[in-house]
């Protein structure tokens, strides 16, 4: 489940949307988000949100995954809506909610139908600096490695009652952060050496 939340698992499936060129998808999503942001009524954003939900259902993306990814923006959008109702600004509340949901779902649709490497290759075509893309790919690759390490250290700390009181928890969290940094540093040296052995010259 953890990997499904973070990873581009759904983008690796074979279907009609994953086969479309990433550049076309980026252009389409960008144009749709700009339309949503400039919309004066909530109709267009709500229609976009519904279309994306329908498309993701067609792709058999589990509702639980979608709900988890949408939890924070959805909660915020609904509460902003309630606040606006309180201030008798129903239309404004509906508009902000619709814009947030519409544009968030469009971005999720992009990430659930395009792998990060294809997405970044398309970004390169749109003249995003190569160095930024290179570091981004390294970061994405090692998120999962560092996450596993962080979970291992956290579990070990928990078993040793490292989080049994607030003071111990504060101390443990600092050690956890330090362990992640040391691991990240050592891994960067190892990765560089491995890349150099395979012909990488920076």
């Amino acid at each position: 489940m953890r990997n499904e939340i973070f990873a581009d698992t759904f983008a690796r499936r074979e279907n009609i949307f994953t086969r479309i060129d990433a550049r076309i998808k980026i252009a389409f999503i960008a144009a749709s988000i700009l339309t949503i942001l400039s919309s004066k009524t909530p109709h267009a954003p709500f229609v976009a949100a519904l279309l994306v939900i329908t498309a993701l259902s067609f792709l058999r993306v589990p509702f639980k995954i979608l709900a988890l990814r949408l939890a924070a923006p959805l909660g915020i959008a609904l509460t902003l809506f309630l606040i606006k109702i309180f201030y008798c600004e129903l239309n404004s509340g509906l508009l902000i909610t619709a814009k947030t949901m519409g544009s968030t779902l469009l971005v999720l649709f992009l990430s659930m139908t395009t792998t990060l490497d294809r997405l970044l290759a398309a970004c390169r075509w749109f003249r995003v600096p190569g160095l930024w893309i290179e570091i981004c790919l390294i970061a994405y690759r090692y998120i999962f490695v560092l996450l596993e390490d962080a979970i291992t250290v956290y579990d070990a700390q928990t078993l040793r009652l490292g989080y049994s009181s607030p003071i111990k928890a504060f101390r443990s969290i600092g050690c956890l952060a330090g362990a992640i940094i040391i691991r990240a540093y050592d891994q960067s040296i190892a990765t560089y050496e491995a890349m150099m052995m395979r012909g990488y010259r920076g």
Partner: peptide
């Protein structure tokens, strides 16, 4: 310092996790 690019990648991963 050619190892610096992988180091930045690792640091981005660490910031992401935190």
């Amino acid at each position: 310092e050619p190892y610096f690019k992988p180091l930045l990648g690792m640091m981005a991963a660490a910031v992401f996790i935190i």
